[in-house]
């Protein structure tokens, strides 16, 4: 017992820090060499090949109608994603509902909009004016019932002309948003299911209602799983906005660049300009994604853990 109380031996000298020859990696240096040569060749091509026509690109990639195209592309991306995420959450919650009718409706929705390509949807929505010349909101089947009873009932609350409502832009937006909702529904569903069932049990044991549990407890935790693929979806959406030229919507970025190139008989430089524009816009979105992910990692992030470890270290000193 007394052994533990004995004062320690006179303090031992700390050994010198080890200085050893590190393992060499000749393979790495060879790879670096090969890649450096390839990069140099590529850059050389970019600079010297006349086909790129950089000065023409610089002069034309910022024309007013191209900037207008950028604006349309961003509007469509944001609009379609906001609608898609909102509707996607609704469909995911429906899909997970105990009610068999709700969950099968959600399944059929997802099935349809994932099965039909976005390009086809864009063309289709552009042609929806064929179905009805006028879109009406009101009580259903009033005309038929009125005929049957021989009375005059008007169930219309308001109506819009198909050509006013389904302008190219609106049709394109709807096609993209509805299609996006189907993908978002699956992402949200995976996110909700990733949250431990103990969480909603604890919340319901506290007397919270189902909507409260979903909004306050489950969804904030599901966001950690939902945000990264949603970032992917947003980036994919930015690129898919180029599909609305099939609706047709013509004031969108890619169409404008291509049109300018076609007009001047210089299609290739404008294609490169399109690549650059999409690269720039996508990088911009990635920054946003980084901050969103950081926000929803609250309480579980490795940075949080490091911070707490640092705090406990500090309190010891």
């Amino acid at each position: 017992m007394a052994d533990f109380d004995k004062s320690p031996e006179p303090e031992r000298v700390r050994p010198e820090i080890i200085k050893a020859v590190p393992v060499r990696h000749p393979g790495r240096w060879m790879t670096v060499g090969v890649l450096a040569v390839l990069v140099a060749m590529f850059v050389h091509m970019l600079v010297t090949n006349k086909a790129f026509d950089w000065s023409y690109q610089l002069d034309n990639a910022f024309r007013p109608n191209v900037i207008e195209g950028v604006r349309t592309t961003l509007t469509l991306t944001i609009g379609a994603m906001v609608l898609g995420v909102a509707l996607g959450i609704v469909i995911a919650v429906m899909r997970l509902s105990d009610n068999p009718i709700l969950s099968s409706v959600a399944w059929v929705y997802t099935w349809f909009f994932r099965a039909v390509p976005r390009l086809v949807l864009c063309v289709l929505f552009g042609q929806l004016g064929i179905l009805y010349a006028e879109y009406t909101v009101g009580l259903p089947f009033t005309a038929q019932i009125a005929d049957l009873l021989g009375v005059d009932i008007n169930g219309t609350i308001f109506s819009v002309d198909a050509n006013t409502f389904l302008t190219g832009l609106m049709a394109g937006l709807l096609a993209l948003a509805l299609s996006e909702a189907a993908y978002m529904a699956e992402i949200v569903r995976a996110g909700i299911q990733s949250v431990d069932s103990g969480q909603s049990e604890a919340a319901s044991a506290l007397g919270m209602s189902r909507p409260q549990i979903m909004r306050r407890v489950v969804l904030p935790q599901a966001m950690r799983v939902i945000v990264p693929p949603t970032g992917n979806e947003t980036i994919a959406m930015l690129k898919d906005t180029s599909l609305v030229s099939a609706v047709p919507v013509t004031n969108e970025l890619f169409f404008q660049l291509q049109a300018a190139g076609a007009h001047d008989f210089k299609p290739f430089p404008m294609l490169i300009a399109a690549c650059c524009w999409y690269l720039f816009l996508t990088s911009f979105l990635m920054v946003g994604q980084y901050y969103l992910e950081r926000h929803f990692a609250k309480g579980v992030s490795p940075t949080g853990k490091t911070r707490s470890r640092l705090m406990s270290l500090r309190s010891e000193h």
Binding site: M208, Q212, G299
Partner: peptide, 27 residues
């Protein structure tokens, strides 16, 4: 009826005080 679980089931995205406040404020 209050319930305490084997696996705690605290809400991980809320601080200790937020965990305790949540139900009284919301419910």
């Amino acid at each position: 009826i209050g319930m305490v679980f084997q696996k705690f089931n605290l809400f991980p995205h809320m601080t200790a005080v937020q965990n305790v406040m949540e139900a009284p404020c919301r419910v």
